[in-house]
Amino acid sequence: MGCWLSKQVKHTPGYEEPAVLAAETAFTVSEVEALYELFRKISYSIFKDGLIHKEEFQLALFKNSKKNNLFADRIFDLFDLKRNGVIDFGEFVRSLSVFHPNTAQDEKIAFAFRLYDLRSTGFIEREELKEMVLALLNESELCLSDDLVETIVDQTCKLVDSNSDGKIDPIEWKEFVRKNPSLLKNMTLPYLKDITMAFPSFVMSSEVDD
């Protein structure tokens, strides 16, 4: 009789080799391996199927699986590249790579545009801007009068919409962000450079058995 391997490493569905993901993203192989540990932790938190569901994403972000949030929903939808309602490991790594400190600014600018283009029309429209401001106010319990909200939205549109067609296109967005780089601060996660320190156990044990 032949001798079979007694243990096989069981990966999550949609697992991709770290070397492949590292070649396509800003991460090194060991950083991708460390991200796998984080991915497993999140994807086994509720449904235990090795895929990140929206509730698990909310739990990881807010410590509350039922907390709905417009922006978290948008991020989840953008991470869900295959549009099948869950995030697999490859999607997780490729999407997080946008937030890596070494990723080109243009990529971050484009991602932020898609994030704020709520209805994917190719433009950030006034109504979308207002919806986001209202969502933020609702989340922060900050009270501003309706008039002030309208004024802030109008003023911002006027600032960004340089061709005055009533909506913000990707070129206007890019110009505006170049003048206001602080708008991109949430598009960079310094943690991603220290990820192997945050999750060293995977790197040390290399492959985790189930």
Binding site: I75, N186, L189
Partner: peptide, 25 residues
């Protein structure tokens, strides 16, 4: 005239846009 808050500056402070919490243990 005092400068008004830029809506995008406000939005970028949203908790839902802070992915850093994913890395908190």
């Amino acid at each position: 005239r005092p400068a008004l808050m830029n809506a995008f500056e406000l939005i970028s402070t949203s908790q839902g846009l802070n992915l850093g919490t994913l890395f908190e243990k």
